[in-house]
Structure formats: C-alpha cells, structure tokens
C-alpha cells in the first residue's frame, strides 16, 4: 500500500522478517533495481514484503538510500578515500554481522552504489596482503567443514534416491487404482506425486 505524504512524495510500506512495517520514500526505493523491476510500474497493493531481511537491516539500507537520494546518478565505483564523512560514519558504526546483513540485503535489492561501496570496503581488508596474511583476515571453510558439507549432500542424495525407488516400487504394484481401498489409493497418489516432484527437482 502506498501512503500519500504529498503529491510529490510517495511513500511505500516495507515489511520486514519480523512482520513489522515502516515507511520508505519512493525516491529512496527507486535506487533499488529490484524494486524498480517488480513494483515501479504496477505499484504495490499493501506492504512490500522484503521478509528475508530483518527490520534493523532494511532500515539501515534505506537510511543509506534516503541519504543518497540527491546524489548524482551512480556512475561506477568511488574510491573509499573519496567517500564523504557521512558515508564513512555510516559504514564505521556497523558491526560485522550488520555489515554482512546489509551487503546481502543490498545485493538482493540490487542497490548498485551501496553494494559497490561495501565490496570495496571488504577488498580493503585484503589489500597489500599475501596468501598467509589473507588467511588471517578471512574465514575459509576448513577441510573438516568441506567434508561435513559433502557428507550431508551425499546423505540427502541417498535419501532422495531411496524415496524415489520406493515410490516407483509402489506404483508398479498398484496398476489398477479402482480396485484399491481408499487409504491405499491416497498413499499411492502421494507416492506418485512424490515421484513426480522428485523427477521435476532432478531436472
């Protein structure tokens, strides 16, 4: 739902993962290419659900958008040294978790300027460092983590295969559905659906 503030300033309601809603100006929202692609032409009937992100993160992202409303159109990355005092404060007051949440949200909303500044900030952590020094700054998945991840994936694949085989077996046994009791008919249909879903997922 849009909430009319003035004829020149349209406001939109944004819904966060907590179910809370808050206002964002149309001018700020238009910095999001995702918003432009989804809602700009057709308008939003009710709050716009960005429910993968919490309220604090979304507010932080749109705080940046509101601030840069009057800046020139984004024309490529700016060096971190050329950022304004406001920009630097904006980044400096975030902790690591908030910073990562902001990058994720900014990436989803496709806000080029913010994403780009965040990325340059990360690149600065690696600047002038060799392999040994980089390892001290960033977390790399350990061999155990990679192995555990692979095991989980293998388990998932094996379980999916088992379900598919069982479903295929059941389907072979129940060729004439009319003759089956109702409960078994329901089960057979479920199995068929599972099989259909699995083959769809495999595609």
């Amino acid at each position: 739902m849009t909430s009319p503030a003035s004829s020149s300033e349209v406001k939109y309601l944004i819904e966060s993962s907590e179910g809370n809603t808050f206002d964002v100006s149309g001018a700020a929202l238009r910095q999001s290419n995702t918003f432009n692609a989804m809602f700009l032409n057709i308008g939003a009937d009710g709050p716009i659900p960005f429910t993968d992100y919490n309220e604090a993160t979304l507010k932080k992202v749109f705080e940046y958008c509101e601030h840069s409303v009057n800046e020139e159109n984004y024309s490529g990355p700016k060096h971190q040294d050329d950022l304004s005092k406001w920009d630097l404060n904006f980044f400096n007051e975030m902790d690591q978790k908030m910073f990562i949440d902001v990058i994720n949200a900014s990436n989803f909303l496709d806000i080029e300027r913010l994403t780009s500044y965040c990325c340059e900030r990360i690149a600065r952590m690696l600047r002038g460092k060799n392999t040994q020094e980089m390892i001290k700054v960033i977390t790399l998945p350990t061999a155990e983590e990679l192995e555990a991840k692979q095991k989980v994936e293998e388990k998932k694949a094996a379980a999916a295969k088992k379900v598919a085989e069982k479903a295929a077996e059941t389907a072979e046994k129940t060729e004439t559905l009319e003759e089956l009791p109702v409960q078994q008919l329901v089960q057979t249909t479920r199995n068929k659906l599972t099989r259909k879903y699995l083959s769809f997922s495999n595609e």
Partner: peptide, 8 residues
C-alpha cells in the same frame, strides 16, 4: 575473521 566466502 570476515566470512568472505559466505557472501552471495
């Protein structure tokens, strides 16, 4: 440490 590889 920054979990760089967990970014999109």
């Amino acid at each position: 440490r920054f979990p760089l590889l967990r970014l999109p």
